[in-house]
Design a protein around this nucleic acid. Structure first.
Lengths: 135, 135
DNA sequence: CGGGATCCTTTAGGATACTG
DNA sequence: CAGTATCCTAAAGGATCCCG
């Protein structure tokens, strides 16, 4: 082996990505958190609670259908709290649960790191494309 | 507003998720990192370097096509290093770059957190489904 | 206003066969 | 062995209409 420490996560003696690969419930939730609209919805709600259409305006580009679907999935996972008033017209407020708040915090951490590193990524892309052209 | 601190990320004075929403390069890389196979490939390579087919066996369930596609995207983003020996038969080793190693570490952190919280998620799902049935 | 239902398009992903 | 190319299916996603 090499001296460089390997990056491993253990969970009950098994490598976590093995657990993660097959174990469906966490895979599904992972998809909800990191999916195209899930992350955006969580980050938006990290700012405060919003009603459906306000949220839709914040998560720019999302369709009604996808926003509803995304919110339902995250509500079911316990990340989002949904408060409905049965009035006409209806009024529904979405907010983060403590669990969702923690998820949003961690996702934001990853995204901020990525944003910081983007110059490196862009540079790597340039080198990669250059090498392709030379071939 | 509420007393609870909001979760915000700032970058040049703009909310980071606004930047993130439109700014394509980081969105694309985010997809590569969090996509179905990207995360798995990064975590597998966190253990050490692997050749194509060995990696394919580790990232169980991935097709040749998707693994090739995933590795190329991450190589282009500077996350993965590809070392080819032009022999017959060919021999290609994949490993993480320092950037990729950091990405893998952070992704693993998020996944480990999620695994820890899964009981809470499962419980929330139970409550959600129960409430649906009552309606 | 907050969705559900429906229909349609686009993309992700897989199986297979082939090549250096 | 490490891919590429081709073809196909399944799933994500979007537009529209409708209702309480």
């Amino acid at each position: 082996m090499d001296e460089q420490a390997t990056i491993q996560g253990e969970e009950h003696g098994r490598l976590i990505y093995d657990v993660f690969a097959r174990n469906c419930p966490s895979r599904e939730t992972w998809g909800h958190l990191t999916g195209r609209w899930g992350t955006l919805a969580l980050l938006a709600l990290g700012e405060g609670s919003y009603r459906f259409n306000a949220l839709r305006r914040k998560v720019d580009g999302v369709s009604e259908k996808m926003l509803a679907q995304t919110l339902q999935a995250l509500e079911r996972d316990g990340m989002i709290h949904r408060e409905a008033q049965h009035t006409i017209p209806p009024r529904v407020e979405y907010s983060l649960t403590p669990l969702g708040r923690e998820a949003a915090r961690r996702l934001l951490g990853l995204i901020e790191w990525l944003e910081e590193e983007m110059p490196r990524v862009v540079e790597a892309r340039g080198r990669y494309d250059q090498a392709k052209n030379d071939a």
